[in-house]
Amino acid sequence: MRHATTLLSCVGLAALVPGWVPGWPVAPARAQEPVHLIVKDHHFVPDHIDVPAGQRFLISLTNQDDTTDEFESYDLKFEKIVVPGGTITVHAGPLHPETYKFFDDYHPDQATGTVTATQGP
């Protein structure tokens, strides 16, 4: 009877957690705090951020320019428009340890930046 209860618990948990496989550990939920950037005078502030390798993360970007900008990264695989005074959020990762580029597609020679994914100690 105990085996049946465990099996039912696993089947029930698998239904609640998409992609979960019975026997695999379930990671505790964690709140993701976004990394905050602004674009002002067609430059990102800060223009470099560090994130932990192997983890998903959020980038929040607020546009303080008086023109529309396009937050884009071929490396990180996102592209999003941000209107003047607007704020957008993009999801990225998990990343391998290295440096990745992002830019404003409307001002690619001025607004550029990097994300470096680093391994923990």
Rank of each mutant, 00 (worst) to 15 (best):
V83F: 09
I59E: 04
V82D: 11
K77C: 06
E72H: 15
M1I: 06
E79Y: 08
A27V: 02
M1D: 13
G113E: 08
E33P: 00
P18Y: 04
A15L: 13
Y74I: 11
F103D: 04
A53G: 07
K101C: 05
T6G: 00
P108K: 07
P22Q: 06
G86T: 07
G12C: 10
H48E: 15
F57C: 07
G23Y: 01
L76P: 05
L8S: 15
T89Q: 13
T68G: 03
T114P: 06
E98A: 12
P25R: 09
D105M: 09
V51G: 06
T67I: 12
A31F: 08
E70P: 00
P18C: 03
P52R: 12
F103N: 08
H42W: 14
F78I: 02
L95G: 01
P46W: 01
G113H: 05
R2C: 04
L13S: 15
S60V: 00
A29N: 02
E72V: 13
V26G: 02
A92T: 02
D50I: 07
V90N: 06
V115S: 04
G85K: 04
F102M: 01
I38C: 05
T62L: 01
V83R: 15
H91A: 12
P97D: 08
N63A: 04
D41G: 15
D41I: 03
K101I: 05
D65W: 06
A92L: 06
N63S: 04
E70A: 03
A15E: 10
P22M: 01
T6P: 00
F57T: 11
P28Q: 13
E72W: 11
D47H: 13
A92G: 14
G86C: 02
